[in-house]
C-alpha cells in the first residue's frame, strides 16, 4: 500500500466528508442557477424508491432554493386507500369488533416538515387549504350521513393508528436552512409503507400566507423478486398457488431424503 492510499484508507470518514461538501457545493451551484427568475425551486435525491428483498424503509432527501423572505413547509401524501376503522365493544366478557366506519381516499402515508413550529409559520386557514398537519388531512367517510361526533372519533382513531405505525409523521423544525436561501429536509418511508405514487408539495409561506407551491412526484415500487412474487400472486393466482404447493411438497420430500441418510 502506498502512503497516499493508506492515508486515504485511514481517513475514510474525512474523505467522505470532503466528498459530501463538494456535492453540496455543486448542488447549491446548480440549484442557484436553476433558480434565477424563480422564487422557489425544489428537487429530490431520487424519484423512485425501490422495494427489494432487503427493504427496511428508505430515506429521501428534498432540497431546494427560495428567493426572498419566507418559511418553507413540505407536505407529503402517499397513495390513497379506503380504510375501515373498527371500534371494539365488550360483549359477554370479551372484546369484539363492533361499529365501524369506512373512509375514502385516505393517504397511506402523510408527513409534514417545516423550519419552524407550524403555528408560527402558517395561518389555520392556509393549513386547512393545503392540508398541513394531521388534523387537516382530507378524507371523508363513505357514509356522509354519519353523526358528526362519530366521524370525529373514528377519524382521530385512524390518525392515531397511522402515527403508531410510523406512517403519519409531523416533523416541525426538521427542515434545515443551509444558507439564507438553500434548504433541505429528509423523509423516512418506513418498511410498511404502501407502494404507489406520492405527491410532495413544497409551500413557500410569507406572513402566514402561501406565496408559491411546487409539487414533485415520487414513486415507491416493488422491484426484482418482490415484484415478481407479488405480481404472480395477484395476476396468476392459480399458478402461484400450484407453485407454492409444489415447492412445499418438494421441500418435504427433500427433507425426508436428506435426513434418512443422516
Amino acid at each position: 500500500m502506498t502512503t497516499l492510499t493508506r492515508h486515504l484508507w485511514y481517513n475514510r470518514s474525512g474523505v467522505s466528508r470532503i466528498l459530501m461538501s463538494l456535492c453540496l457545493v455543486a448542488m447549491t451551484a446548480l440549484v442557484t442557477r436553476m433558480a434565477i427568475g424563480q422564487d422557489l425551486v425544489v428537487d429530490l435525491t431520487k424519484n423512485v424508491v425501490q422495494v427489494t428483498t432487503g427493504f427496511t424503509g428508505s430515506d429521501v432527501m428534498l432540497y431546494g432554493h427560495k428567493t426572498g423572505p419566507g418559511d418553507i413547509v413540505v407536505v407529503i401524501r402517499g397513495p390513497l386507500q379506503q380504510i375501515v376503522v373498527r371500534r371494539k365493544k365488550h360483549i359477554a366478557g370479551i372484546w369484539v369488533n363492533g361499529d365501524n366506519m369506512t373512509f375514502d381516499a385516505v393517504p397511506n402515508y402523510y408527513a409534514v416538515a417545516s423550519n419552524k413550529p407550524l403555528d408560527d409559520v402558517i395561518t389555520s386557514y392556509e393549513r386547512d387549504t393545503y392540508q398541513v398537519g394531521s388534523g387537516n388531512v382530507e378524507f371523508e367517510p363513505l357514509d356522509i350521513n354519519a353523526p358528526i361526533n362519530e366521524i370525529k372519533f373514528f377519524r382521530e382513531a385512524l390518525i392515531r393508528s397511522k402515527s403508531r405505525q410510523g406512517l403519519y409523521a409531523i416533523a416541525e423544525n426538521d427542515l434545515i436552512f443551509l444558507s439564507e436561501d438553500m434548504f433541505r429536509t429528509e423523509f423516512r418511508f418506513p418498511a410498511n409503507v404502501a407502494t404507489g405514487t406520492f405527491s410532495i408539495d413544497v409551500l413557500l409561506v410569507r406572513d402566514g400566507l402561501v406565496e408559491n407551491v411546487k409539487t414533485k412526484l415520487l414513486n415507491v415500487r416493488k422491484f426484482g423478486i418482490e415484484a415478481a412474487v407479488y405480481d404472480l400472486a395477484h395476476r396468476q393466482a392459480w399458478i402461484y398457488g400450484a407453485l407454492a404447493i409444489l415447492i412445499a411438497a418438494l421441500a418435504g420430500w427433500l427433507a425426508n431424503a436428506a435426513f434418512r441418510r443422516a
Binding site: V84, K88, F154, A157
Partner: peptide, 20 residues
C-alpha cells in the same frame, strides 16, 4: 388477549371492496 381491555379500542384495516 380477548378478555383484557385493549389500549386502543379502535383499529384500522384495509376496506374490503364488497363494503364499497
Amino acid at each position: 388477549d380477548l378478555v383484557i381491555e385493549p389500549s386502543d379500542l379502535y383499529s384500522i384495516g384495509p376496506a374490503n371492496h364488497s363494503e364499497g
